[in-house]
């Protein structure tokens, strides 16, 4: 009996190990909203790679909250590439375990962000509460759905977008803090992740407006049982989200997959890759593709993290670290 157990155990280990060495495999550790994007992209790239090099390529995907995924990679999840929500989460890979070099972001064009997105509002069909802009979010009878900035990368974008708007409009951080505080009071529940918040709004019908990444909102419109049930409202100004990608040097060097990993990421910038991104509701960098999808992605003035907050490190420290502005403003359940 014991021998059988050991045999099963050993073969399980070997099976998994074997899987890693049979064909070439890549592991892309990503964050939640990119599931559909990479499903399509991976198929396309695998075909392309097979044509180019004759090699069979299997690409595995892992999805989760951006911070959680970063943590997992640090703890040993062997990602060949990471495609996360925040540069901050990739900086952590450098800080804790030296998995990427300090200057990783400069290695690919556009700050290593082949596609961008921004924060928009998703409202119910007909926009019954008449939500047009950020100011409408702090009105007393409006329910706002947004995830928890402590656990969700997407939520931090929402938070900073609101802050940036208020700072510009009302001048100064103090005013912005007051504005964001009022906004948070209108939030009935903070989900842990962007996809969870979308589910709360779309499936469970809570709240009047969802603060979401544009790609999430577009996805919800297209597929979320929400055909004809929701509308997108683009605010007067929003934040430029640049979800970055990189190879994980330590891993690709160990596994000998650097060449294919780098080609993988480069393909994201190619016309085909950009087309796939646009089709999956991400704003492409490529001008030609952008023009093609102009109707999907309305023009809106966007500010960057660097402009308003002096970079991610600062933003994280000021707002989301323990004792930051979020902790000061948000008291759960307080009305």
């Amino acid at each position: 009996m014991r021998r059988t157990i050991a045999a099963v155990f050993a073969s399980a280990l070997f099976a998994l190990g074997g899987l890693a060495h049979a064909d070439t495999t890549l592991l892309n550790v990503s964050y939640d909203p990119t599931r559909e994007l990479y499903r399509e992209f991976n198929a396309a790239f695998a075909a392309e790679w097979k044509q180019q090099s004759g090699e069979d390529l299997k690409i595995n995907q892992s999805h989760g909250g951006s911070g959680k995924q970063s943590r997992s990679v640090i703890d040993g999840l062997e990602a060949d590439v990471v495609t996360l929500a925040l540069a901050y989460d990739i900086d952590a890979l450098h800080e804790h375990g030296d998995l990427v070099p300090a200057d990783w972001q400069k290695r690919l064009p556009d700050n290593s962000a082949p596609y961008t997105s921004t924060v928009v509002f998703l409202v119910r069909k007909g926009n019954p509460k008449g939500i047009k802009d950020w100011d409408d979010l702090v009105k007393p009878d409006v329910g706002v759905i947004t995830p928890n900035p402590k656990t969700s990368g997407g939520a931090r974008w929402n938070y900073l977008a609101a802050w940036g708007y208020a700072k510009k409009k009302y001048g100064g951080d103090a005013a912005a803090q007051e504005f964001v505080g009022k906004l948070l009071k209108n939030v009935p529940v903070l989900d842990t992740g962007a996809r969870g918040a979308t589910t709360t709004f779309v499936e469970r019908g809570q709240g009047d407006v969802l603060l979401a990444w544009e790609n999430e909102a577009l996805l919800a419109l297209a597929e979320g049982g929400g055909k004809g049930q929701f509308e997108i409202v683009v605010p007067s100004i929003s934040i430029l989200a640049e979800p970055p990608v990189t190879v994980v040097d330590k891993v690709v060097d160990k596994r000998g997959t650097r060449k294919v990993a780098e080609a993988y990421l480069k393909y994201l910038y190619s016309p085909q890759g950009q087309e796939i991104a646009a089709k999956n509701h991400y704003r492409p960098r490529d001008a030609a593709v952008a023009a093609k999808y102009a109707s999907t992605f309305p023009k809106v003035p966007l500010f960057t993290i660097d402009e308003v907050f002096g970079g991610w490190q600062n933003a994280q420290k000021t707002h989301f670290a323990d004792g930051g502005t979020f902790d000061k403003i948000y008291v759960p359940g307080a009305k």
Partner: peptide
Amino acid sequence: VKIIFAVPGIV
């Protein structure tokens, strides 16, 4: 040896 983030860890 892969334990976490692999089948042995789940077991």
